[in-house]
């Protein structure tokens, strides 16, 4: 996901930069204002249509895979209760089996924290907010065994960067 997002962002930014460069470089090639008017505003209608079509397509695709777990979802055999405190994670179990979904029930004990699951290469896999008064249910299935880490992803005070816990995932 991260690579895809970066590539798309870079591509679109580069395209915008190219348009700006073109306009800047060709600015001295004068043209009759009336012609530019007709040309650009016709182009705008097409750009609008293109944006709408791309936007709808992206929205439809992406809105079908939301990370939110409904309470009526199938029962999960591996449940981890996680609470964030200033400045540590309190997990009632620190291991799970790969290949089966794990339900993290995440809450904040004092202030708001962010529960981010990282793999051993330092890639963010999934996250949810850890907030007082609320329990967020995050479903994640670990594909490979190994040592994962829980990092705090919501600023929570002066030892925010120290909130790291390990989480073991074993082979089934």
């Amino acid at each position: 996901m991260q690579e895809l997002v970066w590539d798309i962002a870079l591509l679109v930014i580069a395209a915008i930069a190219a348009i700006f460069l073109t306009v800047a470089v060709r600015a001295k090639q004068l043209i009759d204002p009336d012609r530019i008017h007709a040309f650009t505003y016709g182009f705008r209608a097409k750009a609008f249509a293109a944006l709408v079509i791309v936007g709808i397509a992206v929205a439809v695709i992406t809105l079908r895979q939301l990370p939110y777990v409904k309470s009526s979802a199938v029962p999960v055999s591996q449940v981890v209760n996680a609470s964030g405190f200033q400045w540590y994670w309190d997990l009632d179990r620190a291991s799970a089996v790969a290949g089966q979904p794990v339900e993290f029930r995440v809450t904040g004990g004092d202030v708001t924290h962010g529960f981010g699951i990282y793999d051993d290469s330092g890639r963010l896999l999934a996250q949810t907010q850890a907030m007082p008064n609320y329990t967020n249910r995050l479903l994640y299935t670990f594909d490979t065994p190994g040592t994962y880490r829980i990092l705090c992803l919501e600023y929570c005070g002066i030892a925010h960067h120290g909130m790291v816990s390990e989480f073991e995932v074993t082979a089934p």
Binding site: Q2, T62, Q127
Partner: peptide
């Protein structure tokens, strides 16, 4: 003008919920 328009791109991408799952607060 370029900064505003190009700056919208990463913003809009991050405003997609599935992307936000792995980009939020990075």
């Amino acid at each position: 003008l370029f900064g505003w328009l190009a700056g919208i791109v990463p913003a809009v991408i991050d405003a997609t919920i599935v992307v936000n799952s792995v980009m939020h607060n990075t």
